[in-house]
């Protein structure tokens, strides 16, 4: 099983993702430099990590969308390959048109770095099957632009197709406004595409996927991916 971790200038969670895939999960993992626009079909899963690609100039993800590797990620995803975008990776996947909506500046206008609780909304995806429906997990966020927005038609579509995978919630699983750190519409923290092979999420599962980190709640994402790949 082979993971590819995309590296843009300004990516800064690439090493964390690499570490979890390679050392914690124990799978072959390589970095893929954004200018090396080679075919990705040799990989079983592509991780677009967090960070500040191109310094977040223009809009987060806007410049990365025209980086040579992004065309390859699109081809890979449209061919059914598993792609997970975390934080800035989520912003890039949205700008690239692989996921709907937009991630705007947090409503507080502040960069937020804290643990949040997520309620599992859809566990029938390659990225979330190791969790149980409605389960509440603790995962950190660290972003300035994570305020998810989509127009009413898009939201309706997302809900109808069960594409909302996680929502910000209280520890008891209430998806209230108080539990919403950044103003995201319907408390949305992560979504997948209709085909379920592309996931974008603002929280950082790679930062809580190992005992030494004091929290393993995020490991289920990586275990779900491996389970899916093993079964398929």
């Amino acid at each position: 099983m082979k993971f590819g971790v995309i590296v843009f200038p300004g990516s800064n969670c690439d090493h964390d993702c690499y570490h979890i895939a390679k050392h914690v999960m124990g799978h072959d993992t390589s970095y893929v430099w954004h200018k090396d626009a080679s075919d990705l079909s040799g990989y079983d899963c592509i991780i677009v990590p967090g960070g500040f690609s191109y310094g977040d100039y223009l809009r987060p993800g806007a410049i990365a969308k025209y980086s040579p590797i992004t065309e390859e990620i699109k081809k890979y995803a449209n061919g059914g390959g598993l792609v997970i975008g975390i934080c800035n990776g989520f912003q890039i996947l949205i700008e690239a048109g692989l996921l709907p909506g937009v991630l705007m500046r947090n409503r507080s206008l502040k960069f937020i770095c804290q643990d949040v609780y997520l309620k599992m909304e859809n566990t029938d995806t390659p990225f979330s099957s190791e969790y149980s429906a409605g389960q509440v997990v603790k995962v950190p966020i660290a972003h300035h632009d994570g305020n998810y927005f989509a127009d009413d038609a898009t939201l309706k579509d997302l809900e109808a197709n069960n594409q909302v995978v996680f929502r910000y919630a209280t520890v008891k699983g209430e998806t209230s406004d108080e539990a919403n750190p950044n103003g995201s519409v319907s408390n949305i923290a992560g979504i997948c595409n209709k085909n379920r092979n592309v996931l974008g999420m603002m929280p950082h599962p790679e930062r809580c996927a190992e005992k030494v980190l004091g929290n393993k709640d995020g490991l289920g994402i990586f275990r779900s991916i491996v389970k899916h790949l093993t079964q398929s």
């Binding site: 223009l58 909506g101 937009v102 927005f149 989509a150």
Partner: peptide, 8 residues
């Protein structure tokens, strides 16, 4: 294509 995001 680049300067504006038509979603918002």
């Amino acid at each position: 294509k680049l300067l504006a995001n038509p979603v918002m």
